[in-house]
Amino acid sequence: MASITWLLSEFRDKDSVIDAIRALRAAGVQPGDLDLFSEEPLELPRGVLDRPSHSSLVAVLGAAAFGIGGTAFVWYAQHTYEVITGGMPVFSFWGTGVITYELTMLGAVLSTFGYFLFESGLVFKHGRLKRDKDAPVPVVPPEKIWVRVRCEGGNTVRPTAALQEAGAVSIEAKTGAGL
């Protein structure tokens, strides 16, 4: 049962946030222990705080799964009760192709949405989001950016210094029971 201290600090602009992240990383803080809060999307330069994602891959896999599954289902449906068509194919490449396409797209839509819910942790908390689910969440006023740092074992000296150096407007520490 290590005690966890959360450093919450407010910044005025993106540049100082970028400086702060760089300083924190230099101070040994892992990207997984860092969170930014803002009322708008923050686009940081590559390499500052990357959050790798598999969303494209998931979308493609979901699309393929729905497309293949849907086509297989159509094939099954057209063959379980075979209708005499007088020479026309029961299962046709052209006709089913359209259905395959639409279901592929539906698969992409659903997997994108599902993965968004998963990745953002809004519905299903997992990984570090699950670990941090009781962490304090700052109420962010407009045009401000808050940085939250997770410090294990009360080791807050170096991160605090890094935040101050980068130009934090305020820094507060909250201690809570962690894992």
């Binding site: 209708v83 005499i84 068509t85 007088g86 020479g87 026309m88 006709g95």
Partner: peptide, 21 residues
Amino acid sequence: CDEAPCEPVCPTYATYHNPEG
């Protein structure tokens, strides 16, 4: 018709071909 245009467009197989054509 042997190749009836009405048949492939029916979504519910209400019109279809019987074994005697």
